[in-house]
Amino acid sequence: MRDNNISSRKLKNAVFHGIVLGATGFGIVALILLLMQVFRTGLMWLDWDFILSMPSRFPEKAGILSALAGSIWTIGLTILFSLPLGIGTAIYLEEYSNKKSWYNKLLQLNISNLAGVPSIVYGMLGLALFVRFLNFERSILSGALTLTLLIMPVIIVASQEAIKSVPNTLRQGSLALGVTKWQTITGVVLPYALPGILTGSILAISRAMGEAAPLIMVGAAGYVAFLPSGPMDSFTVLPIQIFNWTSRPQAEFQNIASAGIIVLMILLLSANAVAIILRNKYQNRMD
C-alpha cells in the first residue's frame, strides 16, 4: 500500500528545516547587529595611537595599551597554569583512577558542577585564597590563578571526553608492544585526543579572556597608567577597561569603549586562530 501520510510528513520536514534555520539565523542576526554597532561607533577611534597610549581622562588622548598588556600577561599565565593542570587531571581521571570507586564518582560530579559556578564566586575564592591568604596581593598572578580555577573544570571535562574517544584497541596495541603506560599515554592517547583537548581549551581560554567580574574581585584596577613588568604587578584587563569607559557619562568614552571591544575581539580571534591552526595540524596527521 502506498504511504498516505507522505504530504504531511513532507510538510513536517519543511517546517522543521525552517525552525532550525531560524534558530541559526537568530544568533547570526544578533551578532551582525552587535558588530555593526561596535564598528560604527568604534572604528574611527581605532588607530595605532589608541593601541599604543595609556588611558587618560581626555578621550582623544586615551589609549588601551596598559589593558592590552594586562590581558596578554593574565591570559598567558592562565594558559600556562590551566593547560597542564587541566589536562593532567583529565589524564589521571581517565587513565589511572578507578572509575568505579565512590570518591571518583563524587569528584567527577563536582568537576562537572564547578563548570557551572558563576565566575564572581571564583573571584571571591581568589580574593580569599590568593590575594589574602597566600599574600600574592592584587597582582597579575592572583588574577591568572583565579581565572585558572575558573576554566579548569571546562578544560578537564573537555579533555576527558577527548581521551575517552581514543579507541581502546590503540591503547592495547601500544601496551602489547611492551611499552609503559606513560609511554602509551604520550605515544598514542594524547596525540589522538589532542584536537579535542585543544577545542575545549580554546573555548575555555576565550571565556577567560572576556571575564571582568572575578578580576574585579581580586582587585584588578580600573585605571592603570603603566605597563606591568612582572607577574606581581597590579594590572587591568581589556574587559575591565571597556567596562570602565562605558560607565562614564561622556559620549566619546562610549565610542572609545567600542574601539576597545574591537581590540579585544582581535585578540580573541588571533588567540583562537593559533589554537585552530594547531588543532588542524594534528587533525590532519590523524586522517
Binding site: 596495541g173 608492544l177 609503559t180
Partner: peptide, 20 residues
C-alpha cells in the same frame, strides 16, 4: 610484564595501526 610483552608480541583481530 613490560619485558614479557616485548618477548611475546600480539596481533589483534582488527588491524590497529597507530594514526601515525
Amino acid at each position: 610484564v613490560i619485558e614479557l610483552r616485548k618477548q611475546v608480541g600480539m596481533l589483534f583481530q582488527k588491524p590497529n595501526p597507530f594514526p601515525k
